Amino acid sequence: MDLIDTHLHLIYRDRLGYAWTSGIPALATGDFTLAVYAALIAGRGIAGALFMEAGVDDADYKTEARFVAGLVGQNGLLGQIASCRPEEDEGFDDWLDECQGLKVHGFRRILHVMPDALPQTPTFRRNLAKIGARGWAFDICVLARQLPIAVDLARACPDQPLVLDHCGVPDIAGGGFSEWAKGISALAALPHVHVKMSGISAYCAAGTANKATLQPWVDHVLAAFGPKRMVWGGDWPVVNLGTGLPEWIDLSHDLLSGLSDAEQTQVASATARRVYRLD
């Protein structure tokens, strides 16, 4: 089961600003480069990776995409999911035009750090629809409590392919299964929404990120979406707050071991190739 990693962050501090990392000791210093990532995954069955915009300072998000475009083709990097600002009309169309030449396969606007009202505005939804009209997917990054907002957004944009990052950020350590599960099921009822199996080891209590802890959460997502609507992501280097990347790869194989070979292939690579147009 060769995996396509649809969620690779890279940090190059000499080029870009990452203010959000300052309060996270494991991420606050040093670079997390493509070369380091390549060494971590060597021999672990990663067939390729998509860079996921890394939440750089607002002034740098376009610079980030331009820089990463120059890395595509190296160490298995297949392309990127770039940042955008759908809440702003000014320059939005021009940014989409430029991204046609930057090896972009999708976009993301991190929503869990923004006001809940942001994705509910007509401007945001109108511009989001422009992404889908050009054939690109959009990754939704929300907290579990914001899943109803994601449902509302998805219903308002039925022609926009959507990918829910990190299984909807469940509060695994706090046992917040019930409300999260309802939100997942509501999103899964919308056929243009997909889900990303990524990030969840970081939501476990310390020392409990294992198969026994995570299996019920993964099983619910699989039952709701099915393998044909699930992609996989490594979430490096944020995954270091949980298991670490090599361990997450191994754990992912264990969590998916109950699926048939064909179903495992869907989660590992086939869905990603279709949703992000990697072929």
Score class of each variant (00 low, 15 high):
Leu162His: 03
Ala206Trp: 01
Thr243Glu: 06
Gly174Trp: 08
Ser22Asp: 14
Trp236Ala: 02
Leu96Asn: 10
Asp235Cys: 14
His105Gln: 11
Thr265Met: 14
Met52Val: 13
His194Cys: 09
Ile149Cys: 07
Lys211Gln: 09
Gln80Pro: 05
Phe177Glu: 09
Thr121Ile: 13
Ile172Arg: 02
His194Leu: 08
Gly48Val: 06
Pro158Ile: 15
Ala144Gln: 13
Gly48Met: 06
Val267Glu: 07
Ala205Pro: 04
Thr121Ser: 15
Asp219Gly: 10
Ile184Asp: 02
Val239Tyr: 00
Phe107Tyr: 08
Lys211Leu: 10
Ala186Phe: 01
Gly168Leu: 12
Tyr276Cys: 07
Thr63Met: 11
Leu143Trp: 06
Thr243Met: 08
Gly234His: 03
Gly233His: 05
Leu16Glu: 01
Lys62Arg: 15
Gly168Met: 13
Phe177Ala: 15
Tyr12Met: 06
Asn127Ser: 11
Asp57Glu: 10
Leu153Ser: 07
Gly30Cys: 12
Asn75Phe: 11
Arg126Leu: 01
Leu222Ile: 09
His192Asp: 07
Gly242Lys: 05
Thr265Phe: 14
Asp159Thr: 14
Phe138Pro: 00
Arg273Ile: 05
Ala129Glu: 12
Gly174Asp: 07
His105Met: 11
Arg155Asn: 02
Ala270Tyr: 00
Phe32Ile: 13
Arg145His: 14
Cys157Arg: 02
Leu96Pro: 12
Leu214Met: 11
Pro216Lys: 05
Tyr12Leu: 07
Pro122Phe: 01
Ser83Gly: 12
Asp171Thr: 11
Leu40Asp: 03
Leu10Val: 13
Asp89Lys: 09
Leu259Asn: 05
Gln146Pro: 10
Leu162Cys: 03
Val72Asn: 01
Leu256Ala: 08
Gln215Lys: 14
Arg125Cys: 15
